[in-house]
Design a protein around this nucleic acid. Sequence first.
RNA 1: GGCGGUGUAGCUCAGAUGGUUAGAGCAUACGGCUCAUACCCGUAGUGUCACAGGUUCAAUUCCUGUCACCGCUACCA
Length: 645
Amino acid sequence: MSKKTFYVTTPIYYPSSKLHIGHALTTTMADTMARYKKMLGYDTFFLTGSDEHGQKIEKTAQAAGMSPLAYTNGIVDSFQTLWKKLDIGYTDFIRTTEPRHYETVSKIFQTIYDKGDIYKSEYEGYYCTPCETFFTERQLDEGHCPDCGRPVEVVKEESYFFKMSKYAAELTVYIEDHPHFIQPETRRNEMLSFLKQGLEDLCVSRTTFDWGIPVPIDDQHVIYVWFDALTNYLTALDYLHEGEKYQKYWKHGDEILHLVGKDIVRFHTIIWPIILMAAGVRLPDRVFAHGWLLLDGGKMSKSRGNVVDPLALIEKYGSDAIRYFLLREMPYGEDGFYSEEALVLRTNTDLANDYGNLLSRTTSMLDKFCAGVIPGKSLEDEVDQEFSQMAILLKKNYVLHMDQLQFGKALQEVWKLIARGNKYIEESAPWALAKDATKTNKLHTVLYNLAETLRVATIYISPFMPATPAKVFSQLGLVDAAWQGWDAVDFGASIGGTRILRGEPVFPRIDVKEALKMGEKPILEENEIQESEEGINLIGIEDFFQADLRVASIVKAEKVQGTDKLMKLSVDVGGEPRTIVAGIALHYTEDELEAKKIIIVANLKPAKLRGIESQGMLLAASSSDKKQMRLLTVDADIASGSKVG
RNA sequence: GGCGGUGUAGCUCAGAUGGUUAGAGCAUACGGCUCAUACCCGUAGUGUCACAGGUUCAAUUCCUGUCACCGCUACCA
């Protein structure tokens, strides 16, 4: 019999800025779920990725004088670094800029178009000309552009539309017939009431920017947002060729689960199912919306400067502690609160005092009273039996809560067993038993039960905290994988005779005052410039030398037609002519630039900007408000092509 | 504006088809223990269960109203 399958996804994140701890929440949930299902023996596929198209990326990259792809490459790297540090074990990482995705999106679009569910019409929206952006009525700030505050105008644009209206009734029936499709319940109700108002057709293409997947039947248009972004869930499974992964995890899969934040529920529970219906593809089983991780009562946002940098946090407290905090503290489907103090408190009480200390006192007693060997169980009275009974109940509740994504409750169940262990020590006072030769049997039973409690609890904990189990099992001497898996989760295994290896505390107690002293300035990411000044991300000299910096002299400068910021520079690098496109036209005129000696990155991957290939990047300093920008140059003449470094 | 939700111990929250003393964890106080990471164990509290009416023998639990907060109310990636 083949294994049951489980497919879990996170949203693909938008790389216009760095990830914060809120993103880490969704991804940690997905990872924990994937590890849990894997532990239970499911054939599991876990997908995360990045959503790299759109006007915002196009503009940001342009402002940085980079191609969109070059720009997102760097950010995607930072995503992957974070996931690695958080022990996120995804099966695949999808980028919407990959060829496989282009082809998949085109295929779906074409399929639905051929079916007659996509048609050409006119999109009417509020347009801010200086910002080159469309807004909806809701987004407007008292009738003005929310970005620049200037008045907007109503503009019509030719667009392709997706006939969502056609499927509204069918979707409503589906949601009603599948009570667990949208969770939690309140979100489901919101979506049903949204559907009750009827659906409008959805605008799925744009002509105002280019950075996206072209509409297959009309290259004047690029596919807009949701058709592109949501389809990633199928791309990664090779829906394109209806390949093996697609057959196994999607078409005939046992469970498909999308984890999302509450802000994008509608897209996943209305638009996405309808795309699938139109394309004749099976719908996912569950879309779970979690709440936001709020910071001391306020929403985390870049502009408020209170974005928590997860990397710094991991560095300081370790990834398992962060994961534990996130999963333990977030109430089901609702917003939770983060503060460094709460994190430290949680880590100390649950991980250090209860769990870590139980290991510490158990291994210490095994060393002192049993010569470092876990004894066999040699007696069993009522108290001892309580453990096996608790463990049975724990298993039942744990599975129940995990399947409902009630991570906090599942953990609380595990901690009941841990707490029982600590209480049991007090009740049976092994140090007293050890002094009485007639009570050796009891002593051995007590210590066996404690070791067994730790072993079992650690199995339950392992999907939440991937790094910890190895340490604990090693201290308990239970290095054989046979003791560590779900098959061995029942209390009462024959671990007697195992030699333990007491070690350092797995979760040292954190001095709250000490930790928060830096907490006068908690771990917050002020902005990227400051961060680099403070040198938080230290790099080695070899990293630096990866960039080939050269002196170049500008031969000719000309503004790129139809842009505000771009300047096309013809430069000479030690006799080699090159073209560089840079976003400096607001700060320099053509004349000012000519004959200047500048510093360029000579080994940057070429990128096309406005159709012009830019073969490198120049270095310039800009003030934090971007109003000032000055080129790097040399303070006296030196030959072009000279190496910098 | 419309629809929906929430308001319970200092904090985070559980709970009751209405029925004698309303719960858990954390924090606090006191006591105990010494195997342990100043840890663990025990004990002790404190609550007009948002406010005002109503139904009922009986409401914090049901109903109505008020106040406060929150979510949804389509093109944000």
